[in-house]
């Protein structure tokens, strides 16, 4: 009897150790980046473009680039994503078409981000002739964010009780009126959550923008969608691996890492909070 209990105690302790290890790793990563980056982050750092071989100045240009790319990606992905979610939850019937669409989406979700980057290069940059540009980068990032937008929106539609659909249809509303007047507004918090998660995904990715938009250094902001742009994740990659003097840019690297990390984590937290808030608010 004692033996079985000892075994259990040992096993459970080792599981607890696993949890402790993961918590420790997370805090170590966060602590390292925050403690070394916090001194860099100032108003000047956020509002100045990089200077002097990126050793000084700030990160304004890459930050603006990332914001533009995220907005562009969502403009590209949101309509298609929401319409697809509507198909999946309101129109699709069991069958071959549905299972094909579902497996396409899950495959899209599992594709390596560099593969999206190469597809963007082959199609948006070369075939469509956009060149490396905000347009090509946004479309590539949008494509990559589609699965998360679809999944979150679909869950939002699925959580709306069937009785609202019945009530609307029984009044003589058409299916589309029912979707437009009821389902879309009620699903809005969920769609918003998906949108924020999509932005956070688009803002943090590097591989898809390597060849479709990202520029090593630009003195000015992009002035049209056909211009190249700097971007935060790519900026961090360049600073930490390719700058002329790695030591000299170390502080800028940490500052950039901290800003990128904060932006992405803030977006994710916002998504979690919005979801929790509306789950509590709408108890149909």
């Amino acid at each position: 009897m004692l033996d079985r209990r000892t075994t259990q105690a040992v096993v459970f302790s080792s599981f607890l150790l696993c949890v402790a290890l993961v918590v420790a790793i997370l805090f170590f990563v966060l602590f390292d980046i925050i403690s070394k980056g916090i001194a860099m982050v100032s108003w000047e750092f956020l509002t100045q473009p990089p200077r002097n071989n990126m050793r000084e100045g700030g990160i304004l240009t890459p930050m603006v680039g990332t914001i533009l790319l995220s907005i562009g990606a969502m403009i590209a992905a949101l309509p298609v994503g929401v319409l697809t979610a509507i198909y999946l939850s309101e129109y699709a019937r069991e069958g071959r078409a549905l299972s094909l669409v579902n497996s396409a989406i899950s495959n899209l979700a599992g594709l390596p981000s560099i593969v999206f980057g190469l597809f963007g290069l082959a199609v948006f940059v070369n075939l469509f002739g956009f060149g490396p540009s905000l347009l090509a980068g946004s479309l590539t990032l949008g494509l990559m964010s589609l699965p998360v937008i679809i999944k979150t929106s679909q869950e939002a539609f699925a959580s709306i009780p069937f009785s609202f659909r019945e009530a609307s249809l029984a009044l003589g509303a058409t299916k589309w009126q029912t979707i437009r007047h009821h389902l879309l507004p009620y699903a809005m918090p969920g769609i918003l959550t998906g949108l924020i998660l999509g932005v956070s995904r688009a803002a943090g990715e590097t591989a898809p923008i390597l060849f479709t938009v990202a520029a090593y250094f630009l003195a000015t902001m992009p002035s049209s969608v056909f211009d190249q742009s700097m971007a935060l994740p790519y900026h961090l990659y360049i600073l930490s691996t390719q700058s002329f003097n790695l030591r000299a840019t170390q502080n800028v690297q940490y500052g950039t890492a901290l800003v990128l990390l904060s932006v992405v984590l803030a977006l994710n937290s916002a998504a979690i909070i919005i979801r929790a808030y509306f789950r509590r608010k709408y108890r149909w």
């Binding site: 009785s163 019945e166 009530a167 029984a170 009044l171 003589g172 509303a173 058409t174 009126q177």
Partner: peptide
């Protein structure tokens, strides 16, 4: 007109609930 087992007003205002039918 149909009335359901569980009351299922739309999560909108009282006014909008009643006005919805004539509106569409």
């Amino acid at each position: 007109g149909m009335v359901f087992q569980t009351p299922n007003p739309f999560p909108k205002s009282i006014y909008e609930n009643v006005a919805y039918g004539p509106f569409i």
